[in-house]
Simulated scan of single mutants.
Amino acid sequence: MIELLQDAHFWVGVALVIFLGILGYAGVHKIAWKLLGERGLKVQAQLDEAGKLRAEAEALLVQIKAQREAAEKQAALMLETAKEDAIRLGAEAKVKLDEQIKRRAALAERKIATAQAQAEADVKAAAADLATQAAETVLAARIAGAKSDPLIDAAVKTLAQRLQ
C-alpha cells in the first residue's frame, strides 16, 4: 500500500474523485443538466419547427403539383378546343368560299346572258334596219319604174319612219 501512496497516478485519481465530489456537492451537475436540458428543448423546438415547415412545404408541393396538373389539363383542353375551332372554321370558310364561287359564277352567267341578249337585240335591230332599207330600195325602184302615185310615195315614207 505504501507504493500506492507514492504513485502519482493514485493521487491524481484521488484528486479527481474529490474534485468531482465537490462539484456534485455544489450542484454543478444540476446546472449542467439544466443547461443541457434547455439547449435540448431549444433544439427540440427547432426540430419541431423544422418538421412543421417540412409538412407545410410538402403540402405546398402537393398543392403546386395539383395546380400544375390542372393547368396542364386546362392547356390540353384549350389546345383541343382550338384544334376543333380551327377545323370548324376551315369547314365554314370552305362552305363560304364555295357559296361565293357559286354566286360569282351565277353573276357572270347573268352578265353573259344579258350581254348575249343585248347582242341579239342589236343584231335584230340592225337586221330590221337593213331589211327596211332593202324594202325601201326595192319599192322605190318598182315605183320609179311604174307610174308615180303621190299616195304610194307618202305611204313608203311613213313605212320607213315607222320601221325605224
Rank of each mutant, 00 (worst) to 15 (best):
V14L: 04
A26T: 13
A141M: 13
D153T: 06
I87F: 02
A121L: 13
E109H: 11
A160K: 10
A55G: 07
W33C: 05
S148N: 00
V123M: 04
A57Q: 09
R103I: 07
A134V: 06
Q100T: 06
K83A: 12
W33M: 02
E92W: 09
V95C: 01
K102F: 01
Q6R: 11
K96Q: 14
M1R: 13
E99T: 14
R110F: 04
L20F: 03
M1K: 13
R162A: 03
R162Y: 15
G21E: 10
V17I: 15
A146N: 15
V156M: 03
I22D: 09
L23A: 14
A144T: 09
I112Q: 06
A125S: 08
R142G: 05
F19P: 00
E3Q: 14
K65W: 11
E109Y: 00
Q164W: 06
L163R: 08
A45H: 04
G21A: 09
K111N: 09
T137H: 02
H9W: 07
A113H: 10
A127R: 12
F10M: 04
Y25D: 03
L47P: 01
L61W: 05
L163H: 04
V28W: 09
A57Y: 10
L60S: 12
A105R: 15
K30Y: 02
L16Y: 07
I143L: 14
R110T: 10
L89V: 14
A140S: 13
L89D: 14
A125P: 01
A121C: 09
R54T: 02
A93V: 15
K73N: 05
A141L: 07
L23W: 05
E136C: 12
L139D: 12
Q164D: 07
A134N: 08
R68Q: 05
L89I: 13
K30L: 01
V14D: 07
D122T: 12
L5H: 09
V156G: 04
I18H: 04
D85Q: 14
E136F: 12
S148A: 15
A121D: 04
A141E: 13
A125N: 04
L107N: 13
D153N: 15
S148T: 06
L130E: 11
H9M: 13
T158S: 06
A117Y: 01
T132E: 03
L47A: 04
A113G: 01
A155N: 10
A57S: 10
E92P: 00
W11E: 03
E92C: 01
L151K: 12
L79G: 13
R162K: 12
T81I: 14
R54M: 01
F10R: 08
L5R: 02
L23P: 00
A144N: 08
E3H: 09
A154H: 10
A15R: 15
A82Y: 02
D7H: 05
